[in-house]
């Protein structure tokens, strides 16, 4: 009987706190950020420093992926919706429309910096140098052979070009749900496709070029190794013949065991990515909901912290975390843009 009463009491407490918290949710004093897992390591570093150096609460940063983040971001205006979303790609027109239909009219876009994508292998193997065309031919589902589009027959690198090593093609990369994969397809596969003329051949044959250029082979030469880049790093160390595709910061942290392949003769280094010489890098963004500025405390100050030189400058703490900073002139413009909250 006693236990009965305890049970009822406990349930009553839970229900009442639940109701109380609904009221609590109406006034939020903590910035909420969602979005890309690629931008996550940088935004969290800013959030932590912001929380330490100001009297505002440390923002909560969720890792939901770019698409998931923008969906949450565009769901509406109000404390139950996030204030900022990270994205490793630009917002799509369809997402801007979704935002607008839910009353999120004014959005500020801030370009944070660049993220290089590397094709790396173990230091026990030789350093490689690939063109985008060679990578496309090695990894695409359909390739161009003597002017004909065929299912990819290549099994070793030297079959593509005799100058390449006589090793089996084995590339570990992220699954299609990953932003890194999207960027790799866009920056390497599609450009390589154009370079070798497969795009033109597809158009001539009346096939959608995307079918040819954006389809990665599924016969086991390209291995989808999961979202976790550390896992790919470990597999590369264990298997010197394999190559892996991941973000530059992981190469930077594992420079004792891994080397980044040259792309068209350019080595993936901090300086080469920053100068734009290294051809496989993408911009990282975050988007701010202007309607929340002044309602949720601290957003303006957070933007000021993110765009401060000590954070995103070439010597800032974000560069230590692997972010490739914007060029000086672009940083200045982006800062003004962010601090003034100029909507897109």
């Amino acid at each position: 009987m006693i236990s009965n009463k305890i049970a009822i009491a406990v349930m009553a407490v839970v229900t009442s706190t639940a109701l109380a918290s609904t009221a609590h949710a109406q006034a939020r004093d903590q910035i909420r950020i969602v979005g890309s897992s690629t931008v996550f390591p940088f935004t969290t570093a800013v959030a932590e420093n912001f929380g330490r150096d100001t009297d505002f609460k440390t923002p909560v940063v969720e890792s939901t992926g770019s698409g998931g983040g923008l969906r949450l971001f565009c769901a509406g205006v109000g404390p139950q919706h996030p204030d900022i979303t990270n994205a490793s790609r630009k917002i799509k027109t369809s997402e801007i429309e979704l935002c607008a239909s839910n009353g999120v009219a004014e959005i500020t876009e801030v370009t944070v910096g660049y993220d290089g994508i590397v094709i790396a292998n173990s230091k026990q193997s030789e350093l490689s140098d690939y063109t985008k065309g060679q990578l496309f031919t090695a990894l695409a589902d359909t390739v161009l052979i003597d002017g004909e589009l065929e299912t990819n027959p290549y099994e070793t690198w030297d079959e593509i070009d005799p100058s390449l090593p006589a090793k089996d093609i084995e590339v570990l990369g992220p699954p299609p749900t990953s932003g890194t994969r999207d960027a790799f397809v866009e920056l390497v596969m599609e450009e390589g496709c154009d370079d070798v003329g497969a795009e033109a051949a597809a158009e001539a044959a009346g096939i959608d070029p995307d079918e040819v250029c954006a389809r990665v082979r599924e016969d086991g030469m390209f291995v989808e190794a999961g979202e976790n880049d550390n896992l790919i790093v470990q597999k590369l160390v264990a298997n010197p013949d394999a190559y892996g595709i991941f973000g530059f910061s992981f190469l930077d942290q594992n420079s004792d065991t891994l080397q980044g392949s040259l792309i068209a003769g350019v080595e993936p280094t901090f300086d080469n990515i920053a100068s734009g010489d290294y051809g496989v890098s993408r911009s990282l963004y975050f988007y701010v909901k202007n309607a929340h500025v002044g309602v949720i405390p601290g957003i303006r100050e957070f933007l000021a912290e993110y765009t401060a030189e000590r954070a995103w400058g070439p010597d800032g703490y974000l560069a230590d975390k692997g972010l490739i900073p914007l060029p000086d002139d672009m940083r200045g413009a982006a800062r003004t843009n962010a601090v003034n909250l100029s909507p897109m």
């Binding site: 706190t17 929380g51 909560v60």
Partner: peptide
Amino acid sequence: VGMVAFIVDIPQGITDA
């Protein structure tokens, strides 16, 4: 439900992040 998040502050109650 949003609990995969970077949270620095120690939660003080059941409704804190």
